[in-house]
């Protein structure tokens, strides 16, 4: 039996028409031809098995029935070797074609991966664009909100509150001398301090006036238009009457002592009904000043 003949692989028709479509069709045809050649080689490899079994049976029979066994043995060895070589060759061909087909499929898969990545990138770009557009719209809305009336009202309200506060202060100052109200503590204390200062200045001036000349001081006191000075003049006139009585009774020192004693008593009597802290402070100040005068006299 002759060994089976080897069929050469079908050559691929690589020649084709130029151009993208022609190139694409050529590539497709090439891939199809590769697949077909692989299938054909695999089929031949499958068919090789029964051929080998047939050859082995023939060799066995020829060796048993022949008389020249040595020659038959040598021939059979050569045949077996060639058969094995042929089988190995077919096996290698099939393996090579399978590997080639696998590489082709892998390249196609990588191409598809690149296409999918491109689509993902495009969708991502669209999303980024939509996000930026949304942010821009929000910024525009934010710019409009700045000019809304809601944010303009507080400053005007604040100014009005300041104006109202000033008006209230004026009203407090106007109303203080008459009823001595206690609407606001701070403003009331300020006005009371001012009044105490005025009162503090007045008695010293009065005392200085009364010391040198009695009738002139009396006239000036009557001439003053303010109410408080008028009250103070009245108190001073009563003091002068007391002083005259004192002179008639005792000497100069005794007169001065009585005068000093009479003054604080009269002041205390006049200011007792007011009963305010500021007045008490003024009283203490005047008391200190009178003590200083006593020391100076001594």
């Amino acid at each position: 039996m002759q060994p089976p003949q080897q069929y050469p692989p079908a050559p691929g028709s690589w020649g084709g028409v130029a151009g993208a479509r022609a190139g694409a069709t050529t590539v497709d045809e090439a891939s199809m031809e590769r697949s077909k050649s692989f299938i054909k080689a695999l089929q031949e490899l499958k068919n090789l098995r029964p051929q080998l079994y047939t050859a082995s049976e023939y060799c066995e029979k020829s060796y048993l029935h022949s008389e020249q066994k040595q020659k038959v043995l040598d021939n059979l060895k050569d045949y077996a070797l060639r058969a094995v070589v042929n089988a190995v060759d077919h096996l290698g061909t099939v393996a090579y074609k399978l590997t080639d087909l696998f590489e082709q499929q892998a390249s196609e898969v990588s191409t598809y991966e690149l296409k999918v990545a491109r689509l993902n990138q495009q969708i991502f770009t669209c999303q980024v664009y939509t996000d930026k557009e949304g942010l821009r719209q929000q910024q525009m809305m934010g710019a409009n909100i700045k000019h809304h009336k809601h944010y303009i009202l507080p400053p005007t309200g604040y100014k009005r509150s300041l104006a109202n506060g000033h008006l209230q202060a004026d009203t407090d100052q106007e109303s203080k001398p008459r009823p001595y109200p206690s609407a606001k503590t701070l403003s009331w204390h300020l006005s009371s301090e001012n009044s105490t200062k005025a009162n503090a200045h007045k008695p010293t001036f009065a005392l200085v006036d009364t010391a040198p000349s009695k009738p002139s001081s009396g006239k000036e006191r009557s001439a003053s238009p303010m109410r408080r000075p008028l009250q103070f003049n009245r108190s001073t006139s009563s003091d002068t009457t007391q002083k005259v009585g004192a002179k008639n009774i005792s000497g100069v020192k005794e007169l001065s002592t009585f005068h000093s004693f009479d003054n604080p008593k009269g002041r205390a009597i006049q200011k007792a009904p007011v009963g305010t802290k500021s007045m008490l402070a003024a009283l203490f100040i005047r008391h200190k000043s009178s003590k200083a005068k006593r020391i100076a006299v001594r």
Partner: peptide, 22 residues
């Protein structure tokens, strides 16, 4: 060959999932 086929199969599965998401 088995390892190559397995890797190729895995790639194809990943591609299918990505395509579904797209």
């Amino acid at each position: 060959t088995k390892s190559k086929l397995a890797s190729l199969n895995e790639k194809l599965d990943i591609l299918e999932r990505k395509l579904e998401v797209l």
